[in-house]
Lab assay of single mutants.
Amino acid sequence: SEFQINEQVLASWSDSRFYPAKVTAVNKDGTYTVKFYDGVVQTVKHIHVKA
């Protein structure tokens, strides 16, 4: 599913667990740039983002 900029989502971290994050960019290659609550910004594949 498509997510929008500033949408609150759950994004997987390197430990494969999902954490609350905010979408900061929707990228043309189908990835999302997300910002976790601790301030870390990461680009993740769409399969690693869920509502």
Rank of each mutant, 00 (worst) to 15 (best):
S1M: 14
S1L: 13
S1F: 14
S1V: 13
S1G: 12
E2Y: 12
E2G: 14
E2M: 14
E2F: 13
E2Q: 14
E2V: 13
F3I: 05
F3M: 02
F3D: 01
F3T: 03
Q4N: 09
Q4A: 11
Q4Y: 09
Q4W: 08
Q4I: 07
Q4P: 05
I5W: 04
I5F: 05
I5G: 02
I5C: 06
I5Y: 05
I5L: 11
I5V: 13
N6F: 09
N6M: 06
N6H: 09
N6G: 15
N6P: 04
N6S: 05
N6I: 06
E7Q: 14
E7I: 11
E7A: 08
E7K: 03
E7M: 12
E7V: 07
E7S: 08
Q8V: 14
Q8A: 11
Q8E: 15
Q8Y: 15
Q8K: 11
Q8R: 09
Q8F: 14
Q8C: 15
Q8L: 14
Q8D: 14
V9G: 01
V9Q: 02
V9P: 02
V9T: 03
V9C: 06
L10S: 04
L10C: 15
L10A: 01
L10W: 13
L10E: 05
L10R: 02
A11H: 02
A11N: 01
A11P: 00
A11T: 03
S12C: 15
S12N: 05
S12V: 13
S12E: 14
S12H: 10
W13C: 12
W13T: 07
W13P: 05
W13N: 07
W13Q: 08
S14T: 12
S14W: 10
S14N: 14
S14V: 11
S14E: 10
S14A: 11
D15P: 06
D15E: 09
D15T: 04
D15H: 07
D15W: 05
D15F: 04
D15R: 01
D15V: 02
D15L: 02
D15A: 03
D15I: 04
S16M: 08
S16R: 09
S16Q: 10
S16K: 10
S16C: 14
S16G: 15
S16A: 10
S16T: 10
R17S: 08
R17Y: 09
R17F: 10
R17P: 11
R17G: 10
R17Q: 10
R17A: 10
F18Q: 01
F18M: 08
F18S: 02
F18C: 11
F18N: 01
Y19G: 03
Y19L: 13
Y19P: 00
Y19K: 09
Y19D: 00
Y19M: 11
Y19T: 03
Y19W: 10
Y19S: 05
P20L: 11
P20Q: 07
P20A: 08
P20W: 08
P20G: 05
P20Y: 09
P20N: 06
P20M: 08
A21S: 01
A21V: 04
A21P: 02
A21K: 01
K22V: 15
K22R: 13
K22L: 15
K22Q: 13
K22I: 15
K22Y: 13
K22H: 10
V23Q: 00
V23N: 01
V23P: 00
V23E: 00
T24A: 05
T24G: 01
T24F: 07
T24C: 14
T24S: 06
T24Q: 09
A25L: 06
A25Y: 05
A25Q: 09
A25R: 09
A25F: 08
A25E: 06
A25H: 09
V26M: 07
V26I: 13
V26F: 07
V26G: 01
V26Q: 04
V26K: 08
N27M: 05
N27L: 06
N27F: 08
N27V: 01
N27H: 11
N27S: 03
K28W: 10
K28F: 10
K28T: 11
K28Y: 08
K28I: 10
K28H: 11
K28P: 14
K28V: 10
K28C: 08
K28L: 11
D29K: 01
D29M: 02
D29C: 04
D29I: 02
D29Y: 02
D29T: 01
G30R: 04
G30Y: 04
G30L: 03
G30P: 00
G30A: 01
G30M: 05
T31Q: 01
T31A: 03
Y32M: 04
Y32L: 08
Y32E: 00
Y32H: 00
Y32A: 01
Y32K: 00
T33A: 02
T33V: 12
T33W: 04
T33K: 05
T33Q: 10
V34I: 09
V34T: 00
V34S: 00
V34P: 00
K35M: 15
K35Y: 09
K35I: 14
K35H: 08
K35W: 09
K35E: 15
F36L: 03
F36M: 05
F36D: 00
F36Y: 04
Y37T: 08
Y37R: 08
Y37E: 13
Y37A: 12
Y37K: 07
D38A: 05
D38W: 15
D38L: 08
D38N: 15
D38G: 09
D38T: 14
D38Q: 06
D38E: 05
D38Y: 09
D38K: 07
D38F: 15
G39Q: 02
G39E: 03
G39S: 05
G39C: 08
G39F: 06
G39Y: 04
G39H: 05
G39I: 05
G39T: 03
V40H: 14
V40M: 13
V40G: 07
V40P: 07
V40A: 12
V40Y: 09
V40F: 11
V40S: 15
V41N: 05
V41P: 04
V41D: 05
V41K: 05
V41L: 09
Q42I: 15
Q42K: 15
Q42C: 15
Q42F: 11
Q42L: 13
Q42W: 13
Q42H: 12
T43N: 10
T43K: 10
T43D: 09
T43C: 07
T43M: 08
T43E: 06
T43P: 01
V44F: 04
V44C: 09
V44Q: 01
V44Y: 03
V44T: 03
K45P: 13
K45F: 10
K45W: 09
K45M: 13
K45Y: 11
K45C: 12
H46M: 13
H46C: 13
H46G: 15
H46E: 11
H46T: 12
H46Y: 11
H46S: 15
I47N: 13
I47V: 08
I47K: 09
I47T: 15
I47G: 12
I47A: 12
I47C: 13
I47R: 08
H48W: 12
H48S: 07
H48L: 10
H48K: 13
H48M: 14
H48P: 02
H48A: 10
V49C: 07
V49W: 04
V49D: 04
V49M: 12
V49H: 05
K50I: 14
K50S: 08
K50Q: 10
K50G: 05
K50C: 11
A51R: 13
A51Y: 09
A51H: 13
A51C: 11
A51Q: 11
A51L: 11
A51F: 09
A51E: 08
